[in-house]
């Protein structure tokens, strides 16, 4: 069990999303940074879809009520255990009673905490993700508050081995960090001016020549009106050649749509299932973690990528994650 002593700005239970229900109008929800979430789970021997805590900008304080194997990936929110800074992107054995605290965002915006065995909360429509607006799923359908107690499952066999291995080393310390981590080429660098690769959207050619040039040449700022549903950007105004009537159609994680007032919106984890604004672009999946870690004030530049290259990069990334998963399994054989 973990006990939430301070909830932080916005901490919620999320997995890879509620899929299969978008046709009923139920939004997908799920983590913003899928890469960090998956790696955190892999590091503690969980299935990649197991729920993690998504911790936003200002971190919570969490007490462990029993020994656990954890991993923290994603944005660097200055995690400490009983005041001692700890390393991210690796398994950490934490003892009963220890306090895990997160501070200010040193880099990125969202951190993911995975616990070996996974959080023991009921699934709603096949997912543990919190759908904040409808109060569905996750921990009582809401963001975490002080005093919440979240149980985690008994450890799987694989994690039990790791825990015993680490316990031997821990001695009287409150925690022990593994001496290996995710290789640095899988860890994204979160800059305040990320370059994001974008495929042309379905309505790209309906935009004016100026807008088609500006989308790939101008910087766009992330405004404070940005959340898990979408990031509202400002920069060059983007306009259609002539007004067009559009009927609603599916949107997706990373769709860049442009309402008639001309400021683009990037749709994210809590997006609606369908939308009626023209799509100027779609962010390549491999670059979604960079967007998930962007925060208000950051300026983004979009760089065009072909659909074919985006799929090739997608497959390459998956092969690397697959290798990592197998490598971690071998370490504990």
């Amino acid at each position: 069990m973990i006990r939430v002593l301070k909830p932080g700005l916005l901490t919620s239970v999320q997995d890879l999303g509620r899929y299969g229900y978008q046709k009923y109008g139920v939004i997908a929800s799920g983590v913003m940074d899928q890469l960090a979430h998956r790696l955190a789970n892999i590091l503690v021997g969980n299935q990649e879809n197991e729920a993690t805590l998504e911790i936003t900008l200002l971190g919570p304080v969490i007490q462990f009520e029993k020994d656990a194997l954890i991993a923290i990936c994603g944005g660097d929110l200055s995690p400490t255990i009983d005041g001692i800074p700890i390393k991210m992107w690796r398994p950490i054995y934490i003892k009963k009673g220890a306090l895990l605290s997160f501070g200010q965002a040193a880099n990125g915006a969202r951190s993911y905490l995975a616990v070996a065995g996974g959080f023991d909360i009921p699934e709603v429509m096949d997912s543990k993700s919190t759908y904040l607006r409808a109060n569905i799923g996750g921990y009582q359908g809401r963001a975490l508050r002080s005093g919440d107690l979240i149980p985690f499952d008994p450890l799987g066999k694989f994690s039990q081995q790791k825990l015993e291995f680490l316990c031997g080393k821990a001695g009287s310390e409150l925690f022990t960090e593994m001496d290996w981590s995710v290789s640095s080429d899988l860890i994204p660098l979160h800059r305040r001016d990320p370059s994001i690769r974008v495929i042309r959207g379905r309505q790209f050619d309906l935009f004016s020549e100026e807008s088609k040039t500006n989308i790939f040449n101008e910087a766009f700022f992330v405004t404070p009106q940005s959340d898990r549903m979408g990031y509202r950007l400002t920069g060059a105004f983007l306009q259609l050649k002539k007004p067009a009537e559009m009927v609603s159609e599916a949107v997706s994680f990373g769709t860049i749509q442009v309402p008639s007032e001309g400021n683009p919106i990037i749709l994210l984890a809590d997006r609606q299932t369908t939308g009626g604004y023209p799509k100027i672009g779609q962010i390549a999946t491999v670059d979604l973690p960079l967007i998930a870690q962007a925060k208000p004030g950051d300026h983004i530049r979009f760089k065009e990528i072909s659909h074919e290259d985006a799929q090739t990069l997608y497959l390459e990334r998956e092969r690397i994650i697959n290798k990592l998963r197998q490598g971690i399994l071998l370490k504990f054989k």
Binding site: Y19, G20, Y21, Q22, K23, V247, S248, E249, A250, S252, T273, T274, Q311, Y314, L315, E318
Partner: peptide, 21 residues
């Protein structure tokens, strides 16, 4: 196949590119 979203004039099918390999 992951899921599909039907709309007025379109059906959008989401898939897992890695599994397709």
């Amino acid at each position: 196949m992951i899921e599909y979203i039907p709309a007025f004039t379109t059906v959008t099918l989401f898939y897992d590119p890695f599994k397709i390999m």
